[in-house]
Structures are given as C-alpha cells and as structure tokens.
Design a protein around this nucleic acid. Structure first.
Lengths: 346, 346
DNA sequence: GGCGCGGGTTAAAACGTTTCACCCCCCCGT
DNA sequence: ACGGGGGGGTGAAACGTTTTAACCCGCGCC
C-alpha cells in the first residue's frame, strides 16, 4: 500500500547520514539532542519501522526464540508458554510457537524452520527420548533448553519437574488415606514423563512396605480427556473395581471423573482420583481434583531466562539443570471420608 | 560452537558459484543433475542452513505470520491457534504467537514487534473496538485478518462467527425448553463478543414474544472460571433463583456449574446451564454442558489461508468477511426433564 | 562456415541495517 | 598562533542471500 520506508529515507528527510539515524535508534545518548529530535520527528512523520531482518543479518543477534511443545491444546503447555512469552517479551524477544503434536516429523519440520530463522534459542519438549534433533540444533550453534525433559547431558540446559517424586507423592498420599487397590492410568511408555511418574508410584508402594499388587498400571494411547473416558469405562466393566485411580495427567483424570460421576460412582467414597499438573480446570471440576502441581509458568519463565542468559554471555555460561519439586494439592477427590466399605480388606 | 556456514562456503566446496547454489535451493530444475548432486552433497557435509534473514532481506518475502490472541489460556484460542499453525506450517510459514492478555499496551508492543519482523501478515483479535492499532499495521502495508471480530471495513479481511445468532440460538433453546427466569452471565461490555451475544439473547426473547423480564444480564469482570464461580455464588444467595443460566463462554459456565453442583443444586432440574464455545472440557464436565459451538480450528485455518492468499496475490485479492454460523450442541445441562416445578409459573 | 539459439553457469548488484574508521570543527592549554 | 582533544557526525564496508544480465559453448541450420 505504502512504499516501504527505510533508514535511508529517514536520513535524507532529517538531513543527516544513515549512520546517525542508526545511532539514534541504538545509542541515543551519543547524538546531540537537537539532531536526535529531528531524526525522531522524521521517523514519526514517515512511519518508519526498523527492518529486523536487515538488523539481524548485520548484527547477528536475532530477536526471537523458538518454543516447541507437544500439544498446544493442553493447558499445561499453554501455561508454560505464557511464562515463556512473558519473560521473552520483557526482553524484547518474539516467541515462535510450534506444536509438534507428538509427531517427530512435525517436530523436525519445525526445528528446521527455527534453524533457518536463526532464532536466539530453542525451548523444546522433545517427542523422542533420543535427542537427535536437539543435538543437531546445538551443533548448529543455537542454545537449547530442554523443557520438562530431564537429561544428564552436561552440554544442555534443562528445566523440569521431578516427575518421579510427583508420582511418589500422589501414591503415598493415596496409601496414607487407606486406598489399597490403585490403578495408575498412564500414558504410552515412550513418553518420558509417563515412565517417571509410574516409577515414582512404584517407589511409593515399596517405601510404604506394601505388596506391589496394590498398584496396577493401565496404559492408554494418549494423554487426553477422551483416553481418560475410555479408561474409566474399562474400569467400570471390571468385576472388582479399584478404590483409587491415579492419572498421569489432569486431562485423563477429568475424563475418568466424568465417566465415573455419570455412572453414579461416588468420588471419592467409591473411587478416589488423583490427577497430575493441577491445571485450572482441576480445581473447578465437578469434584475438585487432587492433583500434583507443577510450577507451570515458572518453568516457562526459567527456561526463557536460561536461554536468553546463555545467548547474552555464551562464554561464561554454565549449563544448568533446574529441577523443580512438585507439590501435592489435596482436594476433595481423594479425601478419605467415613463410609461403609463395601468390601472390608484393610 | 561451529563456525556459521554460508552459501559461499557451500559454493567453494562444490566448486560452483554462489548463484548456482542459490539456484539449487530455489529452482532445482534449472541446474544440471550432476552439479545439483554435487551441491547437495556439499550442503549435507557442511550442515548448511539457509539464513532466512538474508533471504527475506533480499527477496522481500517473509516466512512468518503473526497471531495475536486475547488469552492463550483459553482453549478457544488455542484451538484457533492450532488451525492457524496447521495451515501456516503446510505453507512453510512459522507462526509467531502473541498473547495480548486483553491489554492494549501489550497488544501494541506485540504489534510493533511483528511489524519489525516484517511478517507476512497478522491475524489478530483486537482488544479494543477502535481498530487504531490494526489500521496502523495496514498502513504499513501488512495484510491483516481480524479474528473473531466482525467489521464493516471493506479494506480488511475478517473471520468471525455470528455471535448474535449464537446468543439467539442459546436463549431460544432455553425458552423452548420452558425456562423462564434466565440470567445471562456476561463478560464486560467493552468486549465485542459479549455485547453481541447479549443482543442475540434479547432477540430471542423478543422473537418468542416474551416479556423482556425473563432475561436478566449479570456482568462479570472477566471471561474465566473464577468469575463464573463468583457469579454462581451471587445467584445462590438470591431469594429467587433463576431457573437457567446462559454464560458468555464455557469457562464461565464451568465455574458456574461447579459451584452449583457443589451446593447441591441439580443441573438441569433446578437450574439449567448453557455455555458458549463448546470447548473440549464442556462435553467432559460433571454434567455435560450444552454449548454454542464455534468451528474453532476452521476459524484459524480460514484466517491463515486468507492472509497467505492475500500476500501471494496482493493485486487481485478481494478482502473477504467470512462469517461462520454457530451451532447449538444440546447436552444434558439444559435438557428439560420431568420434575416437580417448585413454583409453577408457566 | 558463420549465426542464432539455448542450456548451464557466473559475476555482480541489491536488499536495509550496523559498525568502524575517519573527518571536521571548535575549544582549550601553552 | 598552534597543536591536541573530543564531541558530533559521516561514509563505506559488511552481513548472506536472491536475482538479473551477461557469458560460454556446443549444436543445428541456412
């Protein structure tokens, strides 16, 4: 519509050189107030906007960071994204959000795109445990922060929550409340978090000195509401139902909860439920959901800070592995209440 | 870590000119197969990645589009975003996601950033009804698509859903089911969608030939779960309660639903609830929620297609205003059931 | 046997910044 | 009066591509 206006146009308009215009843009203090005002005026009148591609080409310092998540539909990730976005935008960076949808193929495409953009850094929750894609990024010189995916690689920053501890927290709580036939509805074992949370659950059983039969794992194909619903239907069809369900995330838990409630099963009297993530909907569920809280926004903020810090001072940067502690939020869905036990075992 | 490798390095390695390398990258068909293979080999060995900043600078055609939403935490927007992301990534574009958080200030900052990035186009749900920021973008020559914000401006593309029709749909349904004391829990009137949905609700009352007293509006400060909870508490405290609640979005509805259920109010027997957006959680709620469905992903896809089309062929592009029709999804939360009316009025 | 032709390749210009070395001029000290 | 110094500004190179005009060369055609 309008002819693109460059720094050169501004320069001629303000009767200065392009160098001076660049200076008022980047180091206003070195140019005399009078000329500075003149240049600013010209910028205003012409509606000049700095072309970041050129700036980046010359200066080599990009102003965007990439964020690759497993599922934008999951509130957990949007909260993380919000944290990332906040600190990034404070630092004047744009966030390029990519959704891998748990597909390595999509992940690869997105990573390629980010590499071409020469982004400042990449925050990624890798879909595969083998970190080939991630390593390729690093080899091309970008700083990478692993999100919610612990690693021992000393050349990588990572921000995660101790999933094993979280799993333990949940099941310890259930055992303490007196539940004895616990089913863990878990995601596919290729997902790292799923495995860790289950390991933690097993830890809890062992540490409590219980028979390992008190905990059973039921694997579902995806960590979403629909899978939870199907899992609950399966459980309902059984002759002996569990007295508690621990779900690998809140979406599963909400699905389970809904099906149970609609089937007339009382929660927690008949079956208790514990979720994971403590998304906002967990507290607002029909029966407020006990859940393992992760500091979602904090994860995002921390990761963004790390990646920005790393690119600011690449030399003295030490790669850090930040591991947050999860926290159990007990709500109604798992509180032991006085009730007639249908089948007294403990 | 690794010295950045440019097209020039590839050229010397493959013993061709940089022009040829560029041709291999952009028009493989014009270069002889033998040399093409040689160049590809060099690219592979050196791990070359095209620098998009330089490409964009020279060619003027960027490969990213901007998306500015009101609230990334709202599943409605993440679904829209997913639609945008899908088509954008099919077209080889990155999506820069920005969260304005309903603040004009943040919106302005993000818009500025996008302008500097010289993005292909911007998809935006503006926070203010006056479209100053949007117009500034357009004046700078970027194509803009208004998301979920109808306009009559013929110089702008827009993709929206007929909110007024949606509001009418919801209330017509409630009236048809025999509800007669309807409260609409609505967002702040500065939000365009909120106003439209209320207008539609009023339409429904009028068309049904009812007294306008059957519909009352209760305004809450934000369209989220917490506001819904507070609204429900207010309603519970009243001496005469409504027999139906129409919420301006599903987050509000879920908040209302939870508080009602916990207070022992039966839904829909005592109070019916209708939400708006039909987010995934609506169907999975304690009482599956009747809601007005918007084609969320389709909105995103359509908007992305429009913006890409516009920048492909700016000359022959005609700005379009796409208006999708909402659809009522009736579920349990508003189905009339036989029950003893507490106070017979109709 | 010269000519035009066209496929394949190249050299160089251009994109809009930033940065760096340099210049001008005025003021100050001697 | 002259040199030094420094504030304020300039000009040009450089960043990594894409693109265009030109070039080279072999070949078929008149």
């Amino acid at each position: 519509m309008v002819a693109p206006v460059s720094i050169r146009d501004v320069a001629t308009r303000a009767k200065v050189s392009v160098g001076t215009v660049s200076n008022v843009l980047n180091r206003p203090e070195v140019v005399a107030p009078a000329t500075r005002d003149r240049v600013m005026g010209a910028i205003e009148e012409l509606g000049f906007v700095r072309n970041d591609a050129a700036r980046q080409l010359r200066s080599g310092t990009p102003r965007a960071i990439g964020l690759v998540v497993l599922d934008v539909g999951n509130p957990f990730f949007t909260d993380v994204a919000r944290g990332v976005e906040d600190t990034a935008s404070e630092a004047g960076h744009a966030v390029i959000l990519c959704n891998s949808d748990e597909s390595s193929q999509r992940e690869a495409r997105h990573v390629e795109l980010l590499a071409e953009q020469r982004v400042h850094g990449v925050l990624i929750t890798p879909v595969d445990t083998d970190l080939a894609a991630v390593r390729r990024l690093r080899d091309r010189g970008m700083s990478v922060v692993l999100l919610d995916h612990p690693t021992t690689d000393p050349d990588l920053c990572a921000v995660a929550v101790d999933d094993r501890a979280g799993g333990e927290l949940a099941v310890t709580h259930l055992l303490a409340e007196g539940y004895e036939r616990i089913v863990m509805v878990n995601g596919p074992s290729r997902i790292h978090q799923a495995r860790q949370r289950h390991d933690g659950a097993v830890d809890a059983v062992r540490k409590a000195g219980r028979d390992e039969g008190v905990l059973e794992e039921l694997e579902v194909p995806a960590l979403n509401v629909a899978s939870g619903q199907r899992a609950a239907e399966q459980l309902l069809a059984r002759s002996t139902r569990p007295d508690a369900v621990f779900c690998a995330n809140d979406l599963l838990a909400l699905g389970v909860l809904q099906v149970l409630v609609r089937a007339g099963v009382r929660v927690p009297e008949d079956i208790a439920i514990v979720g994971y993530d403590d998304i906002d909907f967990a507290a607002a569920a029909a029966v407020p959901l006990t859940s393992v809280r992760q500091p979602r926004q904090l994860i995002g903020r921390t990761a963004a800070e790390l990646v920005i810090a790393e690119t600011m001072t690449p030399a003295e940067h030490e790669h850090r592995h930040v591991l947050f502690a999860p926290e159990l939020v007990v709500r109604e869905s798992s509180r032991r209440v006085q009730r007639p036990r249908r089948r007294g075992r403990g």
